[in-house]
Amino acid sequence: MPYRDKLSKHTRRDIERLKNKAFRPATWIGILLYGGTLGLLFVVPIVAGAYLGRWLDTLASGYSVRWTVSLIVLGITVGGYNVFRFLRDRT
């Protein structure tokens, strides 16, 4: 019986903490980490596309930026989709 009382006491305390957390403003560190995560989700596909496209363009004879531009545009699309999904799942 004392375990049940202790469990219900801790459960009530945890529920109150969760309720109070929703009303607290975000901290600067939390905002920076959130923004940094969004930035990485957007920038990494663009940079990867640029490097892959540049490498593919060096394999072609002559001067070409076809692959570089195409994969940068694809990276922007993928990065935007990553950010969209991240924000959708967080709300």
Rank of each mutant, 00 (worst) to 15 (best):
S64H: 10
G62Q: 09
F86K: 07
D57T: 06
V83S: 02
V73M: 12
L71M: 11
L56C: 09
Y81W: 11
V73L: 15
T91M: 10
T91F: 13
D57I: 05
W55I: 14
R66E: 11
S61T: 08
L71P: 02
V69K: 07
N82C: 05
I76N: 03
I72M: 11
W67C: 09
R85Y: 06
S64K: 02
S64N: 14
G80E: 00
Y81R: 03
R88G: 01
T58F: 12
I76L: 15
V65G: 10
R85T: 08
G75T: 01
I76E: 07
L56S: 07
S61D: 11
I72G: 01
G80C: 10
L56W: 13
Y81T: 03
L74K: 00
L87M: 14
S64R: 06
V83T: 05
I76H: 04
L59T: 11
S70H: 03
S61W: 05
L87Q: 12
L59Q: 15
N82L: 00
Y81P: 00
L59W: 09
T68M: 10
F84P: 00
Y81K: 05
D57H: 05
V83L: 05
N82E: 01
S64D: 09
D57A: 07
V65Q: 08
Y81L: 14
Y63V: 14
W67F: 15
Y63I: 13
R90H: 06
T77I: 15
T68R: 07
G80K: 03
G75Y: 02
F86H: 10
W55G: 09
T91Q: 12
I76V: 15
R90P: 00
G79M: 05
L59A: 14
L87S: 05
Y81N: 03
A60L: 15
T58P: 02
T77P: 00
L87T: 11
S70A: 15
V78T: 07
G75D: 00
L59S: 10
R90N: 06
W67H: 13
S64F: 05
V69T: 11
D89P: 00
A60M: 15
V69W: 04
L74C: 05
R90F: 05
T68C: 01
I76M: 15
W55H: 11
G80A: 12
Y63M: 12
V65R: 06
V78A: 12
Y81Q: 05
S70F: 11
S64W: 03
V73C: 09
W67V: 03
V83G: 04
V65H: 07
L87H: 02
F84M: 08
G62I: 10
V83W: 01
Y63N: 13
I76A: 14
D89Q: 12
T58Y: 12
T58E: 12
W67L: 09
D57P: 08
L74R: 00
